[in-house]
Amino acid sequence: MKLRIKYAKYGSLKFIGHLDVMRFFQKAIRRAGLDVAYSQGFSPHELITFAAPLGLSVTSEGEYFDGEFNSVTTTKDMVKRLNEQMVEGMEVLDVRLLKKEAKTAMAVVSASDYVVYIKSGYLNDKAELLFNSFDAFMSSDTIEILKKSKKTEKVVDIKPMIIKAAVFPFDGIDGLSKEYLGERDHEKGFFMFLKTGSEENLKPELVMEAYCKFLDIPYEPHAFSVHRLETYMNDGESTVPLYMAGEMISDE
């Protein structure tokens, strides 16, 4: 049986890298006593795979992994048992049963939405400018950035990878849980809906960097916090959150 597990990562755990989060959950599943399936061979490992990796220092309330299980209980019970094994900074939000033929989260991820906000104490004199000029920036036809790899440098237009972006008060952002956010002086931020996945992938930091360039102000990477709200897939017709591929398991 395939389960899709949704979780939040926040606070100091934003400094735990992707691979270590995997190791953390492997152990948490064992401690919780869930009936996870293992690979064969001398050192069996749990059959779990993660969706879109989250960059170091980014918080999220829309993270996912899929796992193969021999038996399951209910969504409520499994969420509770996993949460008993969490530490501060990690919270399990949902467990869904996937259909047999469902593709792994990693394979179907197509987009994510984020809120980027200014950290407390940073950019005091520029905050107003940043909040007020974003629409102008977003109305440009192209947003070009210089992409550097080891050998080559090329100009890429990231505009097509931005599905939607605007400044919003936090209260106006659907699904945002403010308790996951870090310290800030303004109750609003840059909401961004961006393409994510193996084909097209855009990080919100890159948008902010391009924005600062547009404003002709220096980009200070440490001045911004990034929080992922949700990870999406394309189900053929529309873009929906990853959990929609599965069903809640209730007692009946």
């Binding site: 755990l13 400094f15 170091l56 094994q85 530490v87 440490h222």
Partner: peptide
């Protein structure tokens, strides 16, 4: 945390210094 985000993001393996382990 004792160290700012800025410091933690510029050093190797920040997880060494944050505690909070199981």
């Amino acid at each position: 945390l004792a160290l700012s985000d800025e410091i933690l993001m510029t050093i190797e393996k920040p997880a060494r210094y944050i505690g909070g382990e199981v």
